[in-house]
Write a protein that binds this DNA or RNA. Structure first.
Length: 926
RNA sequence: GCUGGAGUGGCGGAAUCGGCAGACGCAUCGGACUUAAAAUCCGAAGGGUGGUAAUCCCCCCGUACGGGUUCAAGUCCCGUCUCCAGCACCA
């Protein structure tokens, strides 16, 4: 019985593509290029889950489609294989991370290849391969050898850095320090996020709510000397150049907010210390227009002036407060946001605009890491300051006139606000600035301050420099050496490893466990650490790079993956860049994409790449959830309605009483829908919880693609993932849905193959007779629809169209090749194995991978008759079967000739007739 | 709290520009084929405790909820609710 058996078709064609190098990409300048890229995976030990192939299938379909359209397509795949999980796993199991990484990569490759993606495997890259990380290290050195010219707004070679004469006069050591302080890769002692459990520092971006993004371990702030990358220099361009790319607005917005540009002024407040000394407090404000409303100041508890400004009488209370806050984690500091805390230092500052004396407080709602770590507080116009002023009974002075509507809504008066008025408005109680609108006043007051030397215009960013060093083993070693003198002490001189000595390979280590202290494990590689070069002795830099390093530039290496002499060849770069379409998960909206853009801009400034932005179009695929679960609740064996229960997927508790309830997983047959909710079939008063959850090992709802391929084949998996819904949407898995598309592929198979025959062969119904007019019309309609939907990445509706066409063809006794063969080509990007099999079955020798894409003939799309609904007062009362292309008058006449309409028109007259050609007739009657 | 996105049959979803709501698929039901079952093929189906002898046909209601604009609203406007995601003392 020659039924549709993917298990016999799919491996055959995968082997064919591999041995014929069908998808090997050769740069061809005579064709338009199309670079279509997936976010390469981290090869975890768990293997592929069904979320991975969602994006991969979408890009594969488009890659295959573009090839058929005659594009020179680059579609590569590789591995982001450095990083914490491999190392954690290695530590737990005692296997070397290289071994587990290799095993995981092999498993991922096997799984990905079993899905029939058309990657050019000759271009595979692996970030842990020394041939790859040689160039990661090379780019790091480029950062090290670059300074940012703010005037020219670009990174330039460090050799071009102008040395101020005063520095030059101080000698070589001062010059070296000056240069080091300007490099884009630099060392600084700063408070960093230290994670004890992971034994490493983490970037701000890797810390979520005071815990590590990976593993959720607690993170504390300690000062450490660390390597950083000066991404802040690129802040402005990273914002501005978002205008150049076709990305989802949400991602652009997230990046803009992460960079967090705010425009304002830095203002200087003189303050009187306890010893009679005058200290200068610098604050940053975005609202200099409210300066007259500043009634107190707040320093972050960590602010350097706190000690010298605290009066003896306040010493104890201030020190106690500082100690308390230092013990709080970032998490606790934000969690306790509801009530503001703080203490008075005893000192007063002078408001520079009106000379008023205002008290200086310390409070942990002011962050040491942002702006200057100090603020002028304007309680009338800032919510946080208002709350603080209320708590401690501080003055509130209104300097922007609230609108009447606002005063009424909040029950405030100008003199007595019930909450802060943070809108712009007319400036009042501000002497010479009265009557201006906030925006004008902001500029005027800034100019006024600048003229008096009391302040200046200032732009601040939330973005911090990128903490780039990690105290872990499984990462790229820094290609830097610290000189030591004969006694073994550091001289302060740092030299890069010579380009010809790259890659600087990771040393073999027996024990790569983090020590739990900030000393990196690489220090244990005694022989590796000490180097003598050109008569100088060095100790190597012991930190390794974060996982992001390798993924920052992999899209460039794919263009020229084996090049031993350069990270990529210029002409190749010019041909292929930028990436035309980049598809991946939304979880990389900030981190990976921001870091990559930063590195790309460095390479652009230094002349190694030809575009300012690497990724022209970006699409985030949505998450695939597990199968929908129906959950009922029981207490002491008795059903409880879901409306009585608090349940978010984990523990279920009775509302108010906090009694934990039993959770019962229910089969679909046991529940039914009643109104808005699902209820128990046996007792419709019991409401049931119904939802789909994120796939996770602990929930046990993970779908392994291998199982799906074994049961239904790769084509069914691909097709189902695309048929589920729009690519960007979050959607629940359904194994029955996979079965549905499998049945569809079976129907396609049977269009060609007679299942009742002895062996696989073309069905006798398939013939070379000309196709009927209606068949051709539907074929071309399908071609049109599938093509349009591919261009718009609406894969689900394209598949629907192909299903409809198949449903039309199935009952036909005669199946002309002219109706079938173009259809194989339409299906090919989605179900390539089946399509190749059918293509060869109808007599082709070659793969269809480069067959020209079918073109819709518009002249064949016109139907003989179309149906026109006729409405009376907006309600459909009749349908007309008419030829297309009738005029307004003809349509109106046809509608009025309809017996049903005539019956309804008795005793009525037409007020107005709305006629949309070939669409509808609507009669407004009286 | 702020900022996005979403809410359509039993389920996933479609309706691309304001013009026939529910395409396509799943689940369900009926029929054909079969000794029987599976598979396959053909067909039905939003709801109505509305009219009718009737499965034909007609009528009413229906895109989270309440209003509005329009000849016409899932689609546009105003307000409310719920869910998802991101951000969260950034001065």
């Amino acid at each position: 019985m020659p039924s549709y058996l993917p298990a016999s078709i799919e491996p055959k064609w995968q082997a064919f593509w591999e041995s014929n190098k069908t998808f090997k990409t050769v740069t061809d300048a005579t064709k338009p290029k199309y670079y279509i890229l997936d976010m390469f995976p981290y090869p975890s030990g768990a293997g592929l889950h069904v979320g991975h192939p969602e994006g991969y299938t979408a890009t594969d379909i488009l890659a295959r489609y573009r090839r058929m359209l005659g594009f020179n397509v680059l579609h590569p795949m590789g591995w982001d294989a450095f990083g914490l999980p491999a190392e954690q796993f290695a530590i737990e199991t005692g296997t070397h991370p290289r071994a587990t990484t290799e095993r995981n990569i092999n498993n991922f490759r096997r799984q990905i290849q079993s899905l029939g993606f058309s990657y050019d495997w000759d271009r595979e890259v692996d970030t842990t391969n020394p041939g790859y990380y040689k160039w990661t290290q090379w780019i790091f050195l480029l950062l090290y050898e670059t300074w940012y010219d703010q005037a020219g707004k670009r990174g330039r070679p460090i050799s071009e850095l102008p040395i101020p004469p005063t520095v030059a006069a101080e000698g070589d050591c001062a010059v070296r320090q000056f240069i080091d302080s300007k490099r884009l890769a630099f060392q600084a002692e700063i408070p960093v996020n230290w994670c004890q459990v992971l034994g490493t520092v983490l970037a701000n971006e890797e810390v979520i709510d005071g815990r590590s993004e990976r593993g959720g371990h607690p993170v504390i702030r300690i000062p450490l000397k660390q390597w950083q990358l000066r991404i802040t220099e690129y802040a402005e361009r990273l914002i501005d150049d978002l205008d150049l790319v076709d990305w989802p607005d949400s991602v652009k917005k997230m990046q803009r907010e992460w960079i967090g540009k705010s425009d304002g002024a830095e203002v200087v407040f003189p303050a009187l210390g306890p010893l009679g000394q005058t200290e200068t407090i610098r604050v940053f404000t975005t609202r200099p227009d409210t300066l007259f409303g500043a009634t107190y100041m707040v320093l972050a508890p960590e602010h350097p002036l706190v000690d010298s400004l605290t009066y003896p009488s306040q010493k104890v209370i201030v020190n106690t407060y500082r100690e308390q806050t230092s013990r709080k984690s970032d998490l606790e500091r934000t969690d306790l946001a509801k009530t503001k805390t703080g203490v008075f230092t005893g000192a007063f500052a002078q408001n520079p605009v009106n000379g008023v004396k205002i008290p200086i407080w310390i409070a942990d709602y002011v962050l040491s890491g942002y702006g200057t770590g100090a603020i002028m507080a304007v309680p009338a116009h800032d919510e946080r300051d208002f709350e603080f002023a209320q708590t401690f009974g501080l003055n509130i002075v209104t300097v922007v006139q609230p609108t009447e509507a606002w005063l009424e809504k909040t029950g405030s008066t100008r003199e007595n606000l019930t909450e802060a008025y943070s809108e712009m408005g007319e400036v009042i109680a501000s002497e010479e600035f009265n009557g201006l609108d906030s925006l004008t006043c902001k500029a005027r007051i800034t100019d006024w301050l600048a003229a008096k030397g009391l302040g200046k215009k200032r732009i601040h960013y939330k973005l911090r420099d990128w903490l780039f060093s990690r105290q872990r083993y499984w990462g790229e070693p820094f290609p830097l050496m610290h000189e030591i003198d004969q006694a073994g002490n550091y001289t302060g001189r740092i030299d890069p490893v010579d380009i010809e000595d790259l890659p600087l390979q990771l040393p073999e280590l027996e024990d790569y466990k983090p020590s739990g202290r900030p000393e990196p494990p690489l220090g244990k590689a005694i022989d590796w650490v000490v180097v003598t070069k050109k008569g100088r002795s060095y100790r190597r830099e012991l930190n390794t790079m974060p996982q992001w390093a390798g993924s920052c530039w992999y899209y460039l290496r794919f263009i020229d993956p084996q090049n031993p002499n350069a990270f990529l060849e210029t002409e190749e770069e010019k041909h292929w860049m930028p990436v035309d379409l980049y598809v991946g998960g939304a979880e990389h909206a900030v981190l990976h994409l921001l870091y990559s853009r930063f590195w790309h801009k460095l390479l652009y400034d230094r002349g190694y790449v030809s575009h300012a932005e690497p990724f022209q179009k970006l699409v985030n695929q949505g998450m695939i959830l597990g199968e929908t679960e129906y959950t009922g609740f029981k207490v002491n064996g008795a059903w409880v309605s879901a409306k009585e229960v608090d349940f978010d997927g984990g523990v279920a508790r009775l509302k108010k009483k906090h009694i934990e309830t039993d959770k019962i997983r229910l089969a679909e047959e046991m529940v039914e829908k009643k109104g808005e909710f699902f209820v128990l079939r046996e007792d419709v008063n019991i409401r049931i919880d119904s939802r789909a959850y994120k796939m996770s090992k602990s929930r046990g709802n993970v779908i392994n693609p291998d199982e799906v391929v074994n049961a239904f084949g790769a084509d069914s998996l691909r097709l189902y993932e695309m048929f589920m819904g729009p690519l960007e949407a979050t959607k629940p898995w359904s194994m029955r849905g996979v079965e549905g598309v499998f049945r569809f592929l079976g129907r396609v198979w049977r269009l060609f193959v007679d299942e009742r025959a002895e062996s696989v062969g073309l069905s006798p119904a398939v013939n070379s007779e000309p196709a009927e007019k209606e068949t051709l019309r539907l074929l071309h309609k399908t071609i049109q629809k599938v093509t349009d939907d591919l261009d718009g990445m609406r894969f689900n509706t394209a598949i629907s169209a192909m299903m409809e066409y198949t449903n039309y063809l199935t009952p036909l006794a005669s199946k002309p090749r002219a109706a079938l063969e173009p259809f194989i080509l339409l299906l090919a990007p989605y179900a390539p194995h089946l399509a190749e099999e059918l293509w060869s079955l109808v007599g082709n020798q070659k793969s269809l991978a480069y067959e020209p894409w079918p073109k819709a003939d518009r002249t064949l799309l016109v139907a003989d008759t179309i149906e026109i609904p006729v409405q009376i007062a907006g309600k459909i009362r009749a349908r007309l079967a008419v030829p297309p292309g009738l005029s307004h008058e003809e349509l109106k006449a046809a509608a009025l000739a309809d017996p049903k309409i005539q019956a309804l028109m008795i005793g009525k007259s037409i007020q107005k007739a709305i006629i949309v050609l070939d669409k509808l007739v609507n009669l407004v009657v009286a």
